[in-house]
Design a protein around this nucleic acid. Structure first.
Lengths: 228, 228
DNA sequence: ACTTTTGATATGTACTACATAAGTACTATA
DNA sequence: TATAGTACTTATGTAGTACATATCAAAAGT
């Protein structure tokens, strides 16, 4: 970790290419001029000239901003500022095979934290219709083989996030899921909490928020037991 | 006219540029060949030729992967696969001024969820030393003006995340903080829960995990009250 | 007044050329 | 023989030119 910090502090000296600089400068420029989404930006040639770089370099920087969704370009109309999809960029680097072991573990824990903290939103926003849907999901997992149960596990918890009424949160957890599964399958022991999905549904129907928190804790207990 | 409208509806098919395609192809390629971080990649010219695009286009795509930290390049050595910093990319688009209102609200809630779910990790990993540090932070906020209290608020909750022993989580919340503050300051009413920081420290010292969860809930209650 | 055509223009793509840094091989000297 | 130094090679970084393509705008024709 100390090494990590060090490399972060010292790296930029050699690693700053023109495209890197231009990317930063452009970002500063967009912020400073406080463009609003939809506003038109100067032409490539004007920007390149103003920054005193080739159009090539400028386009490499623009390509990054385009990927992030910060700008959009059309053939004649030019460039306009756009709203980046904050999770879309995240998704691109979320590959279990690339992420280092510590971070994988961190993400595994992160999802546990989310799951545990979900109760408050749930009890503010849950509806009878939601609970009915959740119940039908939970019912399906009875009398099915293991591979089905995994899919259903995803559906169940996904529905929980959906019930939170927070779309960003839901998308976030969907992205985290492969990582979570990856870590879970690394440890081969099949985990089964004392509280199952149907129990949780029952609590949601008639129980208090505290009941649900305790239920979820019991449901996830096998995962927590592995932490140290 | 109907045909015209139709073509408008169907247009987006061709809206991907070469750089977009190459970016995807490269990512697939890296995945398929299951390169490990540190492995050397083919030269730009070879890649460009294989993909049948100009070096320009290839470099625009590479520029994106470089930004994400997926590849690193050195002058003669060529390119190597690297570990992307999954949060670094996130940070780039996390600007309250760009994000739309709904997402801002989502992120606000996301942080509340994290905060509420933190207890389990905390009670697995907290140490006396941590608690002592947390207490000293909490003590400082007595007899100070409001601007100081905000800074201290950040320090206190930051320390909580640190105590979770999850570095990714801590960095994540640091990035979320400006958004959180932004939303909080939008609603001008100064919020103050029934449980303050010193109370939370006391609970951490002598109370149970459940006590802490209830304490945190009371601490954040003013925020939850605003949700609907 | 409406449609068609034409022209202007900004981005997308390709190609060339050279600078620069970094590895490699070869040579000279102790 | 070992070492240091030098020249060469090579891959990326940057600049510049040229042309394709799509789209907006205005002129032209009905």
């Amino acid at each position: 970790m100390a090494i990590n910090d060090l490399s972060k502090d010292l790296a930029p000296i050699s690693s700053s290419t023109m495209a890197d600089v231009v990317e930063v400068r452009l970002r500063e420029y967009l912020k400073k001029k406080s463009f609003r989404p939809g506003d038109a930006l100067p032409k490539e040639l004007e920007l390149a000239e103003a920054l005193d770089v080739s159009r090539n370099v400028l386009r490499e920087a623009l390509s990054r901003l385009r990927m992030l969704g910060m700008v959009e370009t059309k053939k004649k109309r030019g460039m306009i500022l756009a709203r980046p999809d904050i999770l879309g960029t995240f998704e691109r680097v979320l590959d279990p095979l690339i992420i280092d072991k510590e971070t994988l573990q961190d993400i595994f824990e992160l999802r546990l934290v989310l799951e545990m903290g979900l109760a408050d939103l749930l009890y503010i926003r849950k509806t009878d219709k939601d609970i009915a849907e959740l119940e039908s999901i939970a019912k399906k997992e009875i009398n099915h083989d293991n591979s089905f149960r995994i899919k259903n596990e995803i559906a169940f918890h996904g529905k929980l996030y959906e019930m939170s009424g927070n779309n960003t949160l839901k998308r976030f957890q969907i992205m985290l899921l492969p990582i979570f599964d990856y870590v879970v399958t690394l440890e081969k022991k099949p985990t089964r909490g004392k509280v199952n999905h149907m129990d949780l549904v029952q609590i949601l129907k008639t129980g208090s928020k505290d009941d649900f928190k305790k239920g979820m804790e019991a449901h996830l207990q096998p995962h927590f037991d592995r932490l140290k």
